[in-house]
Design a binder for these strands. Structure first.
Lengths: 209, 209
DNA sequence: TTCGTCATGTAATGGGTTACATGATTAC
DNA sequence: GTAATCATGTAACCCATTACATGACGAA
């Protein structure tokens, strides 16, 4: 009924796919384990979790019966552990399978890349190549605008533009290497259909708390 | 009374400092001339301009009496040219002189750098060095978190982190070069007090339209 | 005369943070 | 027992975009 952020939803589903977690821990992983993403605040995260529950992608679970912990007193608010539902998992797979322009843009590309381990090679290729051509477009615009305005710009503005373009060029080279690597890894496990065959949960290694 | 964005305000004041402009053109310059900034939408820009007017930083001017253009009919809405007031200019100088943490963060640093041409060397140094130490902090956190979680991460997540760190390291090297250049340019024009002595306008070169 | 682009604006909505409020658990 | 950190949540606000609405001007 509210709050859907795209990246946050994506990241939460992806992280919970590996193992159930509560909000607080989820947020930490958003900063660290999951690349250099922006750190969402609790004011964003918790409402989002509630929304995902009401969508049916997640379920809240009681903190489980770990013997070491304090007994759950009646009416007591405790850690809420979120677990991905079957529907949630399916939804996440669908999101992962998307290879359209949204997947190439700055906001989404990072998260998507972080979950490349759950995708198939051709999906990865489409996303990487889409991203690359997106950046090359941008590069061309920058070059054009620079050619038009070069004379009127002072040294600092010029240097800023130069550095900006170099950053983009560098990311393009990075993508080239990644694409090359993907290509080199072809033919292995060609028809492997991800993991749709077994619904056994992803082996909870229980490093949760 | 409303809308103040920080970066947008800064950029608008800085651009209008050079020459008066109307909103539409202002927006184009935000994309091109002024580095690789985000392109603000009109829905952001126009209300911001109004707010700056009501603050007294800007004044709206009639499109001026250019003979080639259509005669300004009564009640006709035409281009609104914005000009920086004396108060606006002073405000901008004050903003430029700030060298606190806000000036080092991602959002502000770019704009500030673009207007370095209007600042004094020691201000530039403080901002550049502040930015650098900010990035070095970030780098340290990244290294620490990577050391803690390296084992649990798959290849793609790892690669993402590696690339992220390299980007930051690259910006640090860039800053080092800039700082070195600034240092090399020392002693020249040592006591020059910017332009506080004369209030004659910044020599309007009239490349406005 | 119609189409593109110049030009200005507003209301609804989105996506997020800050500040606040609450309380449990752990370490000292 | 008290401080730090773990843990969850909400309301008010901020910044910006989207979609919409209007209209002038020039060129085909």
């Amino acid at each position: 009924m509210s709050r859907r952020s795209g990246v946050l939803e994506f990241a939460v589903l992806g992280l919970l796919r590996e193992s159930p977690m509560h909000g607080y821990e989820l947020r930490k992983r958003l900063n660290t384990s999951l690349g250099v993403f922006r750190a969402f605040s609790y004011g964003t995260l918790y409402p989002c979790l509630k929304a995902l529950v009401s969508q049916g992608w997640l379920v809240e679970e009681p903190p489980a019966d770990e013997p070491g912990t304090a007994a759950p007193l009646a009416g007591r608010r405790a850690k809420i552990v979120y677990r991905l539902t079957a529907a949630g998992k399916e939804h996440f797979e669908n999101l992962l399978a998307q290879t359209g322009p949204e997947a190439w843009e700055d906001e989404q590309f990072g998260v998507r890349f972080a979950f490349f381990g759950h995708t198939e090679r051709d999906v990865r290729m489409r996303v990487l190549e889409g991203r690359r051509s997106r950046l090359e477009e941008r590069l061309e615009k920058m070059r054009a605008s620079l050619a038009r305005t070069r004379e009127r710009l002072d040294d600092y503005t010029l240097e800023l533009q130069r550095h900006g373009m170099e950053s983009v060029e560098r990311e393009v080279r990075w993508l080239n290497e990644l694409i090359e690597t993907e290509r080199a890894g072809r033919d292995r496990a060609k028809g492997r259909p991800a993991d749709d065959q077994g619904r056994d949960d992803t082996d909870p290694t229980d490093t949760t708390n």
